[in-house]
Amino acid sequence: MQKLGDFKLPAFFNYPPYFTLQPVRDTREKQVQLWRELILDYCRTQKVFVIALEEEFPLFSNPVIERSLNNEARETFLSALVSEGRAEWLDKGHRKCLILWHRIQDWADLILSFVKDNGLEDNVMTVEEIRSGIESRGTELHGMDRTILMRALKLLEHKGKLAIFKGTSADDEGVKFSV
C-alpha cells in the first residue's frame, strides 16, 4: 500500500485511468465518488483546509504511475464536494477551495463543547486564542482555518451564544461567550 506520510492511499490511486475524467456517466460517477472521499479523508487527517487548484497538492499527482489530474478533473472533484456542502469555492473563478470536513454547524458544536469543557461560559477570548491558545491545544480547534472559525463563530452569534467585538489591536477580534 502506497503512503503519503502517515496517510494510507487507496488502491485506485495506483490505477492510471482514475487520473483521466471518464466519459461514461456511470463510470464517472463512481470515479468522482472515490476521489471525493479520498480528498475529504486526506484533508481531515492532514488538517488541510484550503486546496488551490493550480498549486501542488499531494493527491493531484502520483509519481509512481506518472499520472496527474488536469485542471478540469480537479475542478470536477472539488465541485462534487461543494455540491454536497463539504466544500466551498473561495473565489468566482473556482481556483481556491475551502474544504469542510466538518460542516460549519459541526464546527460550531465543537466550539460550544470546547467552551463547556473548559468552563469558559462567560469568558472573553480572542479569535486567535481559540485557534492557537493553550486551552485549545489537543482539540480539533487547534490550528483551524480562520475563515472557517469566523463562519462558525458568526453562526453561534446568530444563535445568541456569543458576541463578536473588535479587540484592542486592529487585526484581532474578541469573542464574549454567553452559553
Partner: peptide, 23 residues
C-alpha cells in the same frame, strides 16, 4: 466496452496515446 463500464480511458501517459484499461 466503455459504454458497458468494462473499460476506462487513460489519457495521462506521456506518449499521448489513449489507453483503454480493463479492471
Amino acid at each position: 466496452l466503455l459504454e458497458e463500464g468494462l473499460a476506462m480511458i487513460d489519457d495521462g501517459h506521456r506518449d499521448g496515446k489513449r489507453r483503454y484499461w480493463f479492471p
